[in-house]
Simulated assay, not measured.
Amino acid sequence: MTLTLDTARAIIRNVFAEGAARGCKPLSVVVLDGGGHVIAFERSDGGSPMRFAIAHGKAHGAVMMGIGSRALFQRAEAQPYFIQAMNTLTDGALVPVPGGVLVRSNDAIIGAVGVTGDTSDADEACAVAAITAAGFTPDPGGAPA
């Protein structure tokens, strides 16, 4: 199974709905396919211009490393030089903080969602809820701290 444009748009709508329900600050959301290519991106009114790069870095790092960005965050704490090297290899497109959540279907990674704009924990929670609502299994890469 692959993520379609319609599904990516639904995930984005679900992120915004979850963010509104939680009272989050303006969110930005990117949905990537399993190869790290952008399917869709939206930035809420009031979101800063750099939000695409942040959301993309969260999702891109997750899908390219095969682990959610929470796990990348934990790895960055334990092995900062490794994560710095990985960030160099991805031309800076690896943001190792929560909010980059893998999308799984039948245990296979089919993409990732990156959310930014509020706290990293809130960003991640919105991504998890949106992926679940779309009928997929979210994998944030570890339990929230």
Score class of each variant (00 low, 15 high):
D118N: 11
V38N: 04
G47L: 06
A85S: 08
L89E: 04
G47C: 12
A17M: 03
A122Y: 15
M64N: 01
G142M: 13
L27K: 00
V128H: 04
A62Y: 07
A55C: 09
C24H: 07
A78S: 12
R70L: 12
G114S: 09
V97R: 06
G100M: 01
I83E: 04
V115G: 01
D45V: 12
D139T: 12
H37I: 04
I67Y: 04
I67T: 11
P49F: 14
M50I: 14
G61S: 07
P49N: 07
T4E: 03
N87A: 08
G111I: 00
G23R: 14
Q79T: 09
I67L: 06
T132L: 08
P96K: 03
F16A: 03
P144K: 11
V128I: 14
G99A: 10
R9K: 14
V113K: 08
C126W: 02
V113Y: 01
A17L: 03
F52M: 09
G46I: 05
A40C: 07
S120I: 13
V101F: 05
A17Y: 03
R75K: 15
G23Q: 08
Q84E: 03
L102S: 02
D123F: 15
R104P: 04
K25R: 15
T137W: 08
A134S: 12
G100A: 10
L94A: 06
V30C: 05
V30F: 00
P96W: 00
F82T: 14
A108Y: 04
T88D: 00
P140N: 15
R9D: 13
I83A: 05
S48Y: 10
P80K: 11
A8L: 07
S120F: 09
R51K: 15
A85T: 02
L3Q: 07
I39R: 01
A10K: 14
G135W: 11
A71E: 10
A125E: 09
C126H: 04
G114E: 05
M65H: 12
G47V: 09
C126V: 13
L94Y: 00
D139E: 15
R22I: 06
A125Q: 13
A62H: 03
L32W: 07
N14G: 13
G19Y: 06
E77S: 10
I54F: 09
V101H: 02
P98W: 13
V15Y: 00
A40L: 03
G141W: 07
M50D: 13
Q74G: 13
A112Y: 14
R13I: 11
V30P: 03
G111M: 02
M64L: 10
D123L: 09
V103P: 03
V29T: 12
S28E: 01
G66F: 06
R75A: 15
F16G: 03
T119L: 06
T4Q: 02
V15T: 04
D33W: 00
D107P: 00
R43A: 11
V30S: 01
A133M: 13
A129G: 09
V29W: 02
V113A: 11
T4F: 07
G142V: 07
D91M: 10
K25A: 10
S28Q: 01
L72F: 02
V38Y: 00
R22W: 04
M50C: 12
G92A: 13
